[in-house]
Simulated scan of single mutants.
Amino acid sequence: METRIFFNPGDSIANIHDYNEAVRKGQIFKREREADDLVIAKGPDDEEYAIFYAKDAQVKPKADKAKPYEIKNRL
C-alpha cells in the first residue's frame, strides 16, 4: 500500500540514491543522536530517497515548497 505524505525538501536529514544505504544511514543517525522516529521516503522525482523526522510530515502541504513523498520505511 502506497503512503504519500508531504515534506519540505529542505527539512531532509539526507538524500541518497540507494535505498539500502538510506536505511543504514538512518539507523546510524538515529542510534548516534538518539533521534525521534525517522522515515525513509522516495522523492517526487523517483530518483532519490530522503530521510526525514516523522514529526515533520504534513498530510496537506502547508507551504509552497512541500512536495509529496512515498514512505518506504519507518525507523
Score class of each variant (00 low, 15 high):
10 G>K: 07
35 A>H: 03
1 M>L: 12
53 Y>Q: 09
62 K>F: 13
17 H>R: 11
45 D>M: 05
16 I>L: 11
32 E>F: 03
10 G>T: 03
23 V>F: 08
48 E>C: 06
38 L>K: 04
3 T>G: 01
1 M>Y: 12
30 K>W: 00
31 R>E: 12
39 V>M: 03
4 R>T: 09
2 E>W: 07
49 Y>K: 04
36 D>R: 00
32 E>C: 03
18 D>N: 11
49 Y>Q: 05
30 K>Y: 01
47 E>Q: 13
66 A>G: 13
18 D>R: 04
63 A>G: 15
36 D>Y: 05
14 A>G: 10
7 F>L: 06
32 E>Q: 09
28 I>M: 10
1 M>S: 14
67 K>Q: 14
18 D>H: 09
71 I>N: 11
24 R>V: 05
69 Y>G: 08
13 I>Y: 02
57 A>G: 07
5 I>N: 07
8 N>G: 02
59 V>E: 15
50 A>W: 07
25 K>F: 06
59 V>A: 15
69 Y>I: 11
69 Y>M: 10
6 F>V: 00
72 K>H: 14
25 K>Q: 13
39 V>Q: 04
37 D>S: 06
71 I>S: 09
62 K>W: 14
75 L>V: 11
26 G>Q: 01
16 I>A: 08
5 I>F: 03
15 N>R: 11
2 E>R: 10
25 K>V: 06
68 P>V: 09
45 D>E: 13
15 N>G: 10
59 V>Q: 14
14 A>D: 11
66 A>C: 14
9 P>M: 03
5 I>C: 04
11 D>K: 05
40 I>S: 01
64 D>E: 14
61 P>S: 15
7 F>Y: 10
61 P>W: 13
28 I>C: 08
47 E>G: 10
58 Q>C: 12
6 F>D: 01
21 E>F: 10
